[in-house]
């Protein structure tokens, strides 16, 4: 069963909270991972791997750099989830 946009944002919020210690309520669609949420390029890799597992999706290295905001990641997962 594919996750909805809301479920994906909530899941990403849990992941970002776990990896970077950012409060879940701060993780909103328009937030930039690096500029707003203090997720640096290496933590972003950890977020991506956790998201792959949680949402049964593959996010190749070359696509990671395009995921600037929580909205970008959510759209990507919505489109590619298994």
């Amino acid at each position: 069963m594919a996750a909805t946009q809301e479920e994906i944002v909530a899941g990403l919020a849990d992941i970002v909270n776990e990896i970077a210690g950012i409060p879940v309520e701060d993780v909103q669609l328009d937030k930039s991972f690096t500029d707003d949420l203090d997720v640096d390029s290496l933590s972003m890799v950890e977020v991506v791997v956790a998201a792959e597992e949680r949402f049964d999706v593959k996010i190749p290295d070359e696509d990671v750099k395009n995921l600037k905001t929580v909205g970008d990641a959510t759209d990507y997962i919505l489109k590619h989830q298994g």
Binding site: S41, M44, V45, V48, D61, V64
Partner: peptide
């Protein structure tokens, strides 16, 4: 090196 790709491979 390609930092993110190497990091993912090295860790996981």
């Amino acid at each position: 090196q390609e930092g993110q790709a190497v990091f993912r491979w090295a860790v996981f």
